[in-house]
C-alpha cells in the first residue's frame, strides 16, 4: 500500500510512523522527498532508495514530475495541503491525510485542508499528529468526494454573453 508523502518529512521519517502503517495493514510506503532540504535518514539509510521496516517495504525518491501513477496505486495518500495535490487524490477517490505547513497556519492552504476535513472527505493533521491521524483513519469512513465540473460556470458565462439564447434557438431549430 504505497503512500506518497511530500513535505513534513520528519513526521514521516520516524519509527512511530512506520509502526502505525504496519499496524493498519499497509505493506508499502512510497516517499517523495520533494523540494525540502530534509533527507530521510531514519526509515531509509542515507544514500539508499529503499528499505524494509518489518512487513513494510519502503521506497524513496527525490522528485517525480507526475505522481498520478503513485496516487492511482495508493490506498492512502499523505500530502501537503496544496490544492493541486489535494484534488488529484480526491478526484482519484483516494483516502487522504493532508499536513498543512505549520509555519503557514493562517494561509489559505491550511484553510482548504480544514474545510475539506470538515466536509469529511479527508483528514487534516499537524505534523506532530500525523501518526495519530494514520492510526485513527478508517478510509471507508471518509465521505466520497463528489467531483465538480465547469458546466455550471460555462452555463453562467453563456447566459452573460448571450450564448445561452443562441443555444436555445439552435435547439429549437433542430426540433423543427
Amino acid at each position: 500500500m504505497p503512500a506518497p508523502a511530500g513535505r513534513r518529512d520528519k513526521a514521516v521519517d520516524c519509527q512511530a510512523f512506520a509502526d502505525a502503517l504496519v499496524s493498519k495493514g499497509y505493506g508499502r510506503l512510497v516517499i517523495q522527498k520533494g523540494a525540502g532540504s530534509y533527507n530521510p535518514c531514519v526509515l531509509v539509510p542515507p544514500g539508499s532508495t529503499s528499505a524494509a521496516h518489518g512487513t513494510l517495504a519502503i521506497e524513496y525518491f527525490d522528485f517525480t514530475p507526475s505522481l498520478t501513477q503513485h496516487v492511482s496505486d495508493a490506498a492512502l495518500v499523505i500530502s501537503h495541503a496544496g490544492s493541486g495535490s489535494i484534488f488529484e487524490s480526491l478526484t482519484a477517490g483516494k483516502a487522504l491525510i493532508v499536513v498543512p505547513n505549520p509555519l503557514l497556519m493562517d494561509n489559505h492552504q491550511a484553510e482548504l485542508g480544514r474545510h475539506l476535513a470538515g466536509m469529511g472527505v479527508l483528514a487534516c493533521a499537524a505534523p506532530g499528529d500525523l501518526v495519530n491521524a494514520v492510526l485513527q483513519l478508517e478510509p471507508a469512513e471518509l465521505k466520497p468526494y463528489a467531483r465538480g465540473d465547469a458546466s455550471g460556470i460555462a452555463a453562467a458565462i453563456d447566459a452573460l454573453t448571450g450564448r445561452a439564447g443562441l443555444r436555445k434557438t439552435a435547439k429549437a431549430g433542430q426540433g423543427r
Binding site: 490544492s83 467531483r147 465538480g148 465540473d149 465547469a150 458546466s151 455550471g152 460556470i153 452555463a155 453562467a156
Partner: peptide
C-alpha cells in the same frame, strides 16, 4: 460573487 459549482 457567484457560486456555480467547483471545477474539481
Amino acid at each position: 460573487a457567484t457560486y456555480a459549482g467547483r471545477l474539481y
